[in-house]
Design a protein around this nucleic acid. Structure first.
Lengths: 212, 212
DNA sequence: TTTTGTTTTAAACAAGCGTGTAGAACACTC
DNA sequence: GAGTGTTCTACACGCTTGTTTAAAACAAAA
């Protein structure tokens, strides 16, 4: 049918590998799956990348590109508003439907979290660390200078959990309450989580620094 | 060395299987691992249980026993106090160090959540559903009758996430802030999460039912 | 055309997997 | 002790895995 003089086998392998690894995870993915999807021979992975693990490393390098982060949202805004923006952006990324590479990025991230490999460090540094740094700064500003480090750490983790859990426990939630709100009305979700998070932060703040 | 006239091979296989399945998950666990740990022949699994999957089913039946639930905490207490008790109990279960079977129970639950199999339904019904039902009742009482169903569902999920995330994201948290609070001071964790959750719930309540 | 280097291919490899089988070992009743 | 049903063992089967190999196909320069 269609010859493919323009597509390079090595690149075809990479894009196929991204899809298969995101779909099934490193262990369940087989090089035969990948090569079949890339319309290449089984030996191609070894020839071009040196092995399955090296191909996976190349996939991570591709899916989690090293890019200079823009500084977190405008520091002149009140922290409550910055928290809302942070949550909206994060939810937008996680639930983005159009951009396939971002969906695959979070799929791979989830699989690494469920079964950490030695690549998890790399992945955290590239993708998660900048986000949590931003979040931590916002939370610190809301809690104020009197909040102890432990409260800051736990609160940041809590907010992070509020967003991620929808991704992690989706199969469970579907079984418990099949009539859950459609994931399409993301605005309502962001709104709710923002309200919940701000309320939680205020309560924590009131507790660690009771009125003077 | 030690003969084992008292231990039954079938039971030895079961306890070995619980440990191996909890450690490595269904796919990564091999019947040779299990039989080796149980000091039994490779064919023992097929003889006594009929296969690897059937053994796994037996493990689930053992680890998630069918027991009549005690009704949720004393209904006469205020819901805020019942929430605190609920969170303390849940944290106690999750982080329990002494009771091996409970640790394995949550390990298996996590693995099923990460890679759901057809057994996830069974597992949810036996272990998670009763807990979330209790939590939902408490949250409903705190939010009051005016709260819409979606707010109730999302809020319950949020609180559930607050507790579970410590289990799920432990490897990540360790990498981000290696100096995180030791998991030993569970009281502080429960205290914090309770404060955060109550604050979040109040904020949600104030929003969905503004002052009359 | 010949040469040289790169890429692709079919086939095979060794290792590991779950499972099946036939016989030995065992425990127990007559 | 002979018979009988249960349990255990060594071994092998068929299959899938990642990887290797040797030859074929190809591309570009001499």
């Amino acid at each position: 049918m269609n010859r493919k003089p323009d597509v390079n086998t090595k690149e075809a392998l990479l894009t196929a590998a991204i899809r298969v690894f995101a779909d099934k995870g490193f262990d369940a993915a087989t090089v035969r799956d990948i090569c079949s999807l890339a319309e290449a021979n089984v030996a191609a992975v070894n020839y071009h990348y040196g092995g399955k693990e090296a191909l996976y490393a190349a996939v991570l390098e591709e899916v989690f590109p090293k890019e200079e982060r823009e500084p977190g949202s405008d520091a002149s805004l009140p922290p409550e508003e910055r928290l809302r923006i942070f949550l909206r952006d994060l939810a937008g990324e996680i639930y983005e439907r159009g951009n396939e590479i971002i969906a695959q990025r979070w799929a791979i991230f989830l699989r690494e979290m469920a079964k950490p490999s030695r690549n998890l460090d790399f992945l955290i540094r590239r993708q998660i660390q900048p986000l949590t740094d931003d979040l931590r700064a916002i939370v610190a500003e809301i809690l104020g200078p009197d909040a102890p480090d432990s409260a800051l750490a736990m609160s940041s983790t809590n907010i992070w959990a509020l967003m991620l859990d929808h991704l992690l426990t989706q199969p469970i939630q579907d079984r418990l309450t099949p009539s859950r709100p459609a994931p399409t009305d993301m605005d309502a979700l962001v709104d709710h989580v923002t309200t919940f998070a701000l309320g939680g932060l205020l309560a924590v703040k009131a507790k660690v620094a009771p009125r003077p």
